[in-house]
Write a protein that binds this DNA or RNA. Structure first.
Length: 507
RNA sequence: GGUCCAUUCGUCUAGUGGUUAGGACGUCAGGUUUUCAUCCUGGUAACAGGGGUUCGAUUCCCCUAUGGACUACCA
């Protein structure tokens, strides 16, 4: 297998934002190529003019870039087989459809869409499916049933036509898939697929085979939805006399719950993104990037959805994925997408980030809130709360009390902890804190605990109240660390304010 | 309806003709912690069903069920 140069392609249609299933397909192609030192190609399959969406090409390239999937040959990168956009290659396909016709493996068909529609409806009413193939083609309007003169006349008159593949009758087509093994299909169950459309564009089937051949693709790794057309593609290669690449059909990504494949609606309903990046056009949609996922976590999560290394390792850098990836460890059945596990991956990557990296990411958020801490100060705050967060955006909720005095006090905690003795206790505490010689976490803790030891109070009572007045709630890291970073003046102010606000009758 | 593909804890999955069927996420229970979270420990939970083949099947074969894809001049 490694004799041949490994060349794979990711070939999306620019019909909208790429969804995470598509990113996974791209990722598997990329990992496979890089594992063997091969080439990863991005080819845009835009032969359907009607479904073309402005901005989709950009979106696809930006998504791959964000995910760290580097394209070797493609629209932006160029390459020896350019152009890499099918709409820029139309003349090429024409040549090959002509070749198929001259070989007798394809034919012109003049049937109108209305006529085909009528036949489909008719079949449907009998509970059948109309099949333009070996049993019906001879009763249709095409170059098999028309005389050569008629055909030439119609072509000369510029009449609309399509070119169909002439699927052989009753032939066992054997083919093989790297994930699913060997399969056999009888050609009589297949239809005469349109290869060339009346608008002068090839269909996916033709363009795909021609380009994969011309671009010297060695392995086609694509979604399972293409498995039913694999026999057709195999036949096409045979008709052209070309050696077919090896195929691998990836199982689909399924909804987290319920039936069917993952869709945009699931994301909306269950509150997780199904797209890598924000999609600003038409119906807008948020992306993993905007939700605060790290691209490394996103990629790691996708890689493990349908593939596993056969070991118990779960955290992989891109380099490790490249090293470990192999097609035969890709599963056969569809995988339900689990948003919880996606979060877990991000948590793991978040915890691996250095304080400095997190400062750089979090500083803009803090600035946005109107605060300008030094990087050192912010770094100390982050190091205190880091383990409690999974996303950069969580950090504000974990550090807000460093910047802002409590505006209210959690009623639940007040009810449970604040009683008639509390104001006096807090006043005494205030004096202790005010008298502390050096305002460090360690010293403060020592001073406060010594005072408590010599008083009738118990530690839990005092410290919980102290926290309540500092934070406004029962949350946050080590209390004395909070106090040190908050500073003497602000700490005393919060104590005074708290006593006054919680005991209006006593003040 | 037809063609093809698939089926191990709730989820992602490992695994073998003879295993206490392993891990992770989730969940539950303890522990640590002055709070919350983290963290640690432990528990819960699976071979879709029925026939074969076999001394023995979760593993191999067949059938059924269920799920999925495709069935366009879309990809």
């Amino acid at each position: 297998m490694t004799e041949k140069r490994i060349r794979v392609r990711f070939a999306p249609s620019p019909t909208g934002p790429l969804h995470i299933g598509g990113v996974r397909t791209a990722l598997y192609n990329y990992l496979f190529a890089k594992h063997y030192g091969g080439t990863f190609i991005l080819r845009i399959e835009d032969t359907d003019q009607a479904r073309y969406v402005e901005g989709a090409e950009e979106y696809i390239m930006n998504s791959l870039e964000w995910a760290g999937i580097k394209v070797d040959e493609g629209l932006r990168e160029g390459g020896p087989f350019a152009p890499y956009r099918q709409s820029d290659r139309t003349e090429i396909y024409h040549h090959y459809s002509d070749e198929l016709i001259s070989r007798g493996d394809a034919y012109y068909a003049f049937d109108t869409p209305e006529e085909l529609d009528r036949l489909r409806k008719e079949s449907e009413s009998r509970g059948e499916t109309f099949n333009y193939g070996c049993i019906t083609r001879m009763s249709m309007c095409n170059s098999l049933t028309l005389t050569a003169e008629e055909v030439n006349a119609r072509l000369a008159a510029n009449e609309h036509y399509v070119i169909r593949y002439r699927m052989p009758e009753n032939e066992e087509i054997g083919f093989s898939d790297m994930i699913r093994g060997d399969m056999v299909v009888n050609s009589s169950t297949l239809d005469d697929k349109v290869l060339y459309k009346s608008d002068g564009m090839p269909t996916y089937h033709l363009a795909n085979i021609v380009d994969d051949h011309l671009m010297e693709i060695s392995h086609v790794i694509r979604g399972e939805e293409w498995l039913p057309s694999l026999p057709l593609h195999v036949m096409l290669y045979r008709s052209f006399g070309w050696e077919a690449p090896l195929f691998a059909h990836l199982p689909l990504l399924l909804k987290p719950t319920g039936k069917g494949k993952l869709s945009k609606r699931d994301g909306d309903k269950m509150g997780f993104p199904v797209f890598p990046l924000y999609w600003p056009y038409g119906e807008t949609a948020t992306g993993y990037r905007e939700e605060g996922y790290f691209p490394e976590a996103f990629v790691n999560m996708l890689a493990l959805l349908g593939w596993n290394p056969g070991t118990e390792q779960e955290i992989f850098s891109m380099e490790e994925l490249i090293e470990a990836f192999s097609i035969d460890r890709v599963g056969k059945s569809g995988s339900r997408f689990d948003p919880e596990k996606a979060k877990w991956f991000n948590t793991r990557y978040f915890q691996m980030k250095s304080d400095d990296e997190l400062v750089a990411l979090f500083m803009p958020v803090v600035n946005e809130k109107g605060f300008k801490p030094s990087p050192v100060t912010l770094g100390r705050m982050i190091s205190l709360v880091k383990e409690r967060a999974a996303f950069v955006k969580d950090l504000w909720h974990e550090t807000d009390f460093f910047f802002v005095a409590p505006e209210s006090y959690d009623p639940e905690v007040v009810r449970k902890r604040w009683n008639a003795d509390s104001p006096l206790q807090m006043k005494e505490l205030l004096d202790v804190v005010a008298g502390a010689e050096s305002f460090t976490s360690e010293n403060l803790e020592k001073a406060v605990k010594e005072w408590i030891a010599g008083s009738p109070y118990n530690t839990g009572t005092i410290l919980n109240l102290f926290r309540l007045l500092m934070v406004g709630a029962s949350r946050g890291p080590h209390l004395f660390d909070i106090i040190e970073l908050t500073g003497r003046d602000e700490t005393l102010r919060r104590l005074e304010n708290g006593i006054r606000r919680l005991s209006p009758s006593l003040s």
